[in-house]
Design a protein around this nucleic acid. Structure first.
Lengths: 255, 255
DNA sequence: AAGTGGTCTAGACCACGCC
DNA sequence: GCGTGGTCTAGACCACTTT
């Protein structure tokens, strides 16, 4: 479903102002941003190549790239490595206080979720992980690595750890759907408490590779620790999100 | 309290590898990151100048700057315009489900908060604002603009709108502290519901100017709509945060 | 094979912070 | 007034995607 060319009017970028602001990187930024926000360019539409934008603006390629980096930081555009620059779609709204899985809240927003299992194996707990689960370092843990999509765009990679004492044989189940459902249906585990942290970060190495983005792109790290009613840690999850794919929304009643 | 020079061992950056990874921007990044994380460089310590880092690494200045931008996106360093690059301090932890003001939660983390009133005036509601408050467009609103600091570093600017029917004469009170307290003590308004949204954004124009950062630096936009027990919108707040200053933490009990 | 972005060089000039 | 970062140019070569 990728829109390859956006040329309703072939060569729109030629209109970019040449003498005034368009020559500086913020001017170039503004010109492109205007075209996106005016709706000329649909979500996931492909921008002209950097060298084409150059001829349109008269700027050096470095200047054009500075403008593109700017727009990327703002979440307006994203890139596929060595393929091109594309218009970012609207972000997904996430409410951490609702105990709904990814699959439900993406679907509820009329977007198409997909989960892909990258790996599932047994590992030995590091001291840090052991502390979270109340285990001894070196104790076995289930580790799942998954990649999740919205409308065919990879938006996050996650690593999940599960205590095998609570969910023996977990790795034999279908892990490409909702983990919550698997835990509830097969192990009668219900989550009673969630501790969630969110922090801007950079996507590096494995994360960047898995999301097919350049290493160092800004992202959002969402960490979740789930406990059952007895206070046992069921699940420890680290989600690395594209920074332009997520919007957090919380509705709190006080008192 | 700004640390001007970090030269425990004058010229540490000369140690940066010259032939191996240090010549490429990710290598330069790694070298500087290592020095920060090892504790050689304290929070708010000043890095060597770009031209000094150049001689240390043998790279072109553009390459050094690419490395610095990288570290900035990761939240490890920040800059003061035309002054230099500095090591970022630890972020503030924010729990949107707790109805505590900025002053309280910063203090609780042994950091020093400060609020500065930038402007306080009456404005006419835009259609968007009117819709939020359930007013007609053009109705009067109190508008406050404030800047808030942690340990002398400006971390956010906010614009607050308050319905003057609920808080007549608000602008005559001391607005450099907790607004919540003013509303409670002088107008007997208690907040019963908060709707909060958080989204990565770019700090531009006014926001960038107020935080003394370069326009376009990534940030986090936190929007809050507060209602009282009768469902009347009391306060509409837009906070623009430095992206490296905040960490969100939520603790949820389910069912 | 052609085209794209990814990276890098080696200069240059400017605006502003700091002393 | 000196040094800083901020911006820009005009090339170059490489690695990868796409056709």
């Amino acid at each position: 479903m990728t829109v390859k060319k956006s040329l309703d009017r072939p060569g729109w970028w030629m209109d970019l102002p040449d003498s005034a602001e368009g020559r500086h990187y913020l001017g170039v930024r503004d010109s492109i941003a205007a075209h996106i926000q005016s709706g000329d360019l649909a979500a996931n539409a492909c921008l002209p190549s950097e060298r084409q934008l150059q001829t349109g603006t008269g700027a050096a390629r470095g200047t054009v790239r500075a403008a593109l980096f700017q727009l990327e930081a703002e979440g307006l555009i994203y890139r596929k490595e060595r393929s091109g620059w594309y218009v970012s779609p609207a972000p997904i709204v996430y409410d951490p206080t609702r105990w709904e899985g990814f699959m439900s809240y993406v679907t509820a927003q009329n977007r198409a979720p997909r989960t892909e299992l990258l790996s599932a194996r047994e590992v030995s707990a590091t001291p840090e992980q052991a502390a979270i689960f109340g285990l001894k370092a070196g104790a076995p843990l289930h580790e799942l690595r998954r990649r999740r999509y919205v409308d065919h765009r990879a938006v996050l990679v996650e690593t999940i750890f599960v205590d095998p004492r609570l969910a023996p044989g977990l790795l034999d189940h279908d892990l490409e759907g909702s983990l919550t459902q698997v835990l509830r249906n097969h192990y009668m585990i219900d989550v009673a408490r969630n501790r969630i942290e969110m922090q801007p970060c950079a996507l590096t190495l494995e994360e960047a590779l898995a999301l097919r983005v350049k290493s160092g792109l800004p992202g959002l790290l969402v960490t979740r620790i789930s406990e059952d009613a007895q206070g046992r840690v069921v699940e420890y999850d680290q989600e690395y999100w594209r920074h332009d794919a997520l919007k957090v929304s919380v509705d709190i009643r006080v008192g």
